[in-house]
């Protein structure tokens, strides 16, 4: 019983650690106007998805209040 518990518990601890570590390492996620979710730095998202002349909101950070404005 003890050995069984230790092996399975070890697996559970590793899994929980991996999940939390993965979350910490992850890039910020951004919600675009067309409801798609992309990841990357704000600069990457601005360059890749927010091209154009209108100064309207293009993407919202899912992990904070930051917004990206279209290039004007």
């Amino acid at each position: 019983m003890k050995k069984t518990l230790s092996l399975a518990f070890f697996a559970a601890l590793c899994a929980a650690g991996t999940a939390f570590a993965g979350k910490l390492k992850e890039d910020t996620q951004w919600l675009l106007n067309d409801d798609t979710v992309v990841t990357g730095t704000s600069q990457e998202v601005k360059v890749l998805y927010c091209g154009g002349a209108n100064a309207i909101q293009c993407a919202v950070s899912l992990t904070g209040p930051t917004t990206i404005i279209r290039k004007s």
């Binding site: 399975a8 070890f10 697996a11 559970a12 899994a15 929980a16 991996t18 999940a19 979350k23 899912l62």
Partner: peptide, 23 residues
């Protein structure tokens, strides 16, 4: 024991990842 440990790893990892990325 090994099979259950593998499944435990899978379910804990995916379960916690989903909860952390709830939105």
């Amino acid at each position: 024991d090994i099979l259950s440990a593998l499944l435990v790893f899978l379910f804990i990892y995916t379960g916690i990842s989903k909860l952390l990325d709830y939105h």
